[in-house]
Design a protein around this nucleic acid. Structure first.
Length: 643
DNA sequence: TTTGTTAGGGTTTTT
DNA sequence: CCCTAACAAA
């Protein structure tokens, strides 16, 4: 058993003066302005360990991050130093923490605790249904646009009843859609991503008992990437920290890149107004990159007008020049990068040392194809594409329906898939009965079947019986259950009938991968967490069950690269049609955010940075020509080395 | 009710 | 280019 002194020593010995001061801070609000690569995560982890050292109970500590990856990393670090105590600390993304509380408290707002989470694709279907029901044409209000408006309203903290006060927006069209959408979601016992936050705020705000319970529990609250909090997240934190005022916020205004999701950079800029007597700590020493990288980053970010001025410095020497390569086409860009990667690998770099960054997910395809062909291991970070595959969604809809008999979206998806003779007309009847009577859709189906005769009745009854045979998933291994669903419902047969052999094979392989994900889930989770709803939410919140630990070259968007670092970084697609995004044109705030995004990208690099652009790119089968990104003109020539 | 054909639309970024 | 939604025919 090491002495207290030794542990303290171990905590502080690896920190510089400013880091140490921040870590030693115990009571009262604190804001840590931490530049890129200045050891944010290290400070957060050390701070938590110091609290424990001071006698704070682990279950009184909350740590919130933005990505599951960041949460996992922090938990890992703390666990490796402290052992199992770490599991009593609540560490997670805003969404997963909210979910955890909502599972316990959601009855306050009329939800049942086995509610399911809808992703934006599900949400879009619900909005489409609402628009149809309200007789609003796609020209007046496209579903996608409606969903977008609803989402940003929710991110700003508005519910349908509050819309009169949202006077900046013309809400005459959207208000009834918004209202009906929320009503349907409640009747489906489903929440979308925004609801997780909004509903938590709602409960904390209206139930003082619940608020007090969690205020007392979370005596010490930590938030990473505070610059990316939105209004609702701000309010949740403000409520939770209301009693003890122990909010420890870490962030960097230069790295705020979630404006599109409602992040308000003002939250960090005005922190002291919200929390008087805040202790402020600045971390300006960069431990990640040499000077050339920092100079490059600074040449980009210094052109933004609204920011906390700060001076990053590094001990790591002058560094290499930044490679710049212009190529005729996107294919050439990919083969150039993969060629360089091969060279680096033979020079002794490991695949995991290397990352290829891009602005949009679609850009990953070319790299994937080429890396695969050359046999270089790679992983696509944070890609949700797999879960969106039709066959996966079909199987998951069965699972979801077994877990939650109110999930109308899932019901509609699979009631007649594979074809079993239950047509649109019957489905419509069942659904309206369910919605109007507030009954679970499966119950409504049973009632409706009783009124029918012949084949339709038989089909519905068989379908319900089939679902019931899984008994809500009890006594089933999830992986076994999926296998059984696929076989007994005839999904495998349907795939083989419908597709050519090659396609069918690959779809069945995808289902196989889903089954291995379930197996992995069952292996990793403690027994009490192996439930259908836990499994579904893990998939929906993007927690990585799929083999993501595998070594390889990382392919990722700049957004998902935030918080990560790599010895070698390729930043691709520096074109005026891609980055800064053309969507940001004409909007000063959006342009500033693109610039911060560029800053984040450059500062991921520890050693070698390559910038590339293509002069033409094929989109939707059409080739367009593209000029250079404005960011390239901002970098001083002497930092660049043309390849 | 099911199957086949076709026109149109889709690419920011994440939980 | 590729996938989906909408429509027509069986």
């Amino acid at each position: 058993m090491p002495h207290t002194q030794d542990i303290s020593q171990a905590i502080f010995s690896q920190l510089n003066t400013q880091q140490g001061a921040a870590v030693a801070h115990v009571d009262g609000p604190a804001l840590i302005l931490a530049g890129a690569g200045s050891g944010k995560t290290r400070v957060l982890t050390a701070r938590i360990m110091n609290l424990l050292q001071q006698g704070v109970a682990p279950w009184n500590i909350l740590a919130v991050t933005f990505t599951n990856k960041a949460a996992g990393e922090m938990r890992q670090r703390i666990r490796s130093r402290l052992g199992p105590v770490a599991s009593d600390i609540w560490i997670g993304t805003f969404h997963s923490i909210a979910l955890r509380i909502l599972r316990i408290e959601c009855h306050h707002i009329g939800y049942e605790s086995d509610f399911v989470i809808y992703d934006p694709a599900d949400g879009l279907k619900v909005v489409t249904k609402v628009l149809k029901r309200l007789n609003i044409s796609a020209q007046t209000m496209p579903a996608k646009k409606a969903l977008g408006i609803i989402s940003s309203l929710k991110n700003s903290g508005y519910r349908p009843d509050d819309l009169e006060s949202a006077s900046t927006l013309d809400t005459t069209v959207i208000a009834p859609v918004f209202r009906e959408y929320q009503k349907l979601m409640l009747s489906f016992n489903a929440m979308d991503f925004d609801d997780l936050l909004l509903n938590l705020k709602e409960i904390l705000y209206h139930s003082s008992d619940v608020l007090q319970k969690y205020q007392q529990k979370f005596r010490y609250i930590h938030v990473d990437e505070y610059q990316d909090t939105n209004q609702v997240q701000f309010e949740i934190l403000h409520l939770l920290a209301g009693q003890h005022r122990n909010l420890f916020a870490v962030g960097d205004d230069d790295q705020s890149i979630y404006r599109f999701r409602g992040a308000t950079i003002e939250n960090i800029l005005n922190f002291e107004q919200h929390y008087p007597n805040t202790a402020i700590f600045k971390l300006e020493q960069n431990y990640r990159s040499p000077q050339s990288i920092l100079d490059c980053a600074n040449s980009i970010i210094s052109r933004n007008p609204r920011r906390h001025p700060k001076q990053l410095f590094s001990d790591l020497g002058p560094g290499e020049k930044i490679g710049l390569k212009v190529l005729p086409s996107a294919d050439d860009e990919a083969s150039f990068i993969v060629g360089e990667i091969q060279q680096l690998l033979s020079d002794g770099f490991a695949p995991s040392d290397i990352a290829v960054l891009y602005r949009t997910n679609a850009q990953s395809r070319l790299f994937e194809a080429l890396l695969l062909r050359r046999g270089i291991p790679y992983r696509v970070v944070g890609s949700f594409e797999f879960w969106k595959r039709k066959e996966i969604q079909d199987v998951l809809a069965y699972v979801s329906l077994i877990a939650n008999p109110r999930d109308i979206q899932a019901f509609e998806r699979v009631v007649n898939y594979p074809l079993r003779g239950i047509g649109a007309a019957s489905v419509e009847k069942i659904v309206s009965l369910a919605v109007d009577s507030g009954r679970p859709v499966l119950e409504a189906a049973a009632l409706m079947a009783a009124d029918l005769r012949g084949k339709a009745r038989q089909s519905i009854e068989n379908f319900l019986e089939f679902l019931a045979s899984f008994q809500g998933g009890q006594d089933y291994l999830i992986s076994d259950m999926i296998e059984e669903i696929v076989r007994k419902a005839g999904i495998d047969k349907d795939i083989r009938n419908r597709e050519d052999e090659h396609q069918a094979q690959s779809r069945l392989e995808n289902i196989g991968e889903l089954i291995s994900a379930a197996t992995a889930f069952e292996k990793e989770r403690p027994a009490e967490q192996i439930t259908l709803s836990h499994f579904l939410e893990e998939i929906n919140l993007g927690i990585e069950t799929r083999q993501n630990t595998q070594e390889g070259v990382s392919l990722l968007t700049i957004h998902s690269a935030k918080g990560l670092e790599f010895p070698v970084v390729f930043l691709s697609g520096l074109e005026n049609t891609l980055f800064p995004s053309p969507m940001s044109m004409g909007n000063q705030f959006a342009q500033e955010e693109e610039r911060r995004l560029m800053y984040v990208a450059v500062t991921r690099c520890q050693e070698k940075l390559f910038l590339t652009r293509a002069q033409s790119r094929t989109m939707f089968g059409k080739t367009t020509f593209c000029g250079e990104s404005m960011f390239l003109r901002d970098i001083p020539q002497e930092l660049l080395h043309k390849l």
